[in-house]
Design a protein around this nucleic acid. Sequence first.
DNA 1: AATTGTTTTCATTTTATTTTGAAAGTTTAG
DNA 2: CTAAACTTTCAAAATAAAATGAAAACAATT
Lengths: 167, 167
Amino acid sequence: MELEQAKNQFINLWGNFGSQWGINRSMAQVHAILITSPNALSTEEIMGKLQISRGNANTNVRELINWNLVYKETILGERREFFRAEKDMWEVAKRIVRERKRREIEPLIQHLNELKTVESDNLEEKKEFENTIESIDRLVNKLDSMSNALMKADEHAFFGKILNLFK
Amino acid sequence: MELEQAKNQFINLWGNFGSQWGINRSMAQVHAILITSPNALSTEEIMGKLQISRGNANTNVRELINWNLVYKETILGERREFFRAEKDMWEVAKRIVRERKRREIEPLIQHLNELKTVESDNLEEKKEFENTIESIDRLVNKLDSMSNALMKADEHAFFGKILNLFK
DNA sequence: AATTGTTTTCATTTTATTTTGAAAGTTTAG
DNA sequence: CTAAACTTTCAAAATAAAATGAAAACAATT
C-alpha cells in the first residue's frame, strides 16, 4: 500500500477505534494525524488534512494537550503554534491510563464507598445488595491496581514477561 | 442510606460509567437493575422501574444476553420470560473483556497488520511510519495479552497477588 | 383455527453529541 | 498605539445515537 493511503487508513482506523472507547472521532483523528506526521503541524494543516473546522481542530488539539498526549512547539521565526504528538506508544498508553484512572476510576470508587452500607428492614436483601456492591468494589479496585501496575512497570521488560506467562 | 435509594443511585452510577466506556446508558442501567435485583425480572418490571419503553427494554436485554451477562429464566406457570444477571463480578469482568477483545482488539490487530509495510519513495518517512505502526501493534498486542491474562487467571488468587506487587 | 398473551421489529421522533464559523479575545511586531 | 496574525469561544446548525410505540410476528391455550 502507498504511504499516503496507509496514513489515511490509519487516521480512519484510529478514529473508529477511539469512538468505540468513548473518545470522540475528531480527537482520535487529530491524534492519529499527529502521531503519523514526521513534523509538528499547525492548526491550518490539521484543518486541511482532516477537513474539519478551525473550532473543531482547536478544541481537540487542546483536549489532547490536556491528556498530555500532544505538545505545543514553536518554530523559529514562525508566529503560529505547531503541535507534535508523543510517539512512544508505551508512554501514550500510560498517560491515557493515568488520565482515565483519575477521571473515572477514582470517582467511581468514591461513589461505591457511599453505597457500601445501607439501611433496610429486609436484612436478607440488605445483605445481598451490600455483597454485590462489595464485589463490584473489589473488581474496580483490581482495575485500579492494574492501572498502577501498567504505569509503574518500567517498559516492557518485567511487566511484559509476566503477561507472557498467561499467553 | 435507604436500600431503595441506594439501588437507584447505583443504577445511575452504572449508567453514567457505562456511557463513558462506550456502552449505552440504557443497557448499563438494565444491567444495573438486574445485578441488584434478588429475583429475575420481567420486561414489564424493567420498563416500569427504569421508565423506558418496551422496545428499548427488549433491545437492551437481548444485547446483554449477547454479551453473556444475562440469562433468560422461566418461572413455573408463568408464560412470559424473566431475566437474571450473572452476579459474580469477576465472571462479569471476564465476559466483558472476552467480548471486547473479540469485537474490537482482534479486528484492530488485523487492520494494523495491513499497515505494517507500505511503499514510498521517501525511505526515511516510510521507515518512520512503519515504526509507529509497529509500536502501536506491540502495544495492542500487549493489551491483548492482558485480556488473555485476565481471562485465564483463575480468580483473584494468582493474578491478584501479582498485581499487588505493583501497588 | 381463532383468541390471547408475549416478544420483536423498525420507521419515526427525541435526545445527545459533535461540528461549524463568525465574533471576540489575545499576542506580537512595527 | 494599533494593525495584523493568530487563537479561543460559543450560539446555532448538523449529525449521530438512542428511545418510542404501534404494528407485525410468534407462541401458547382453548
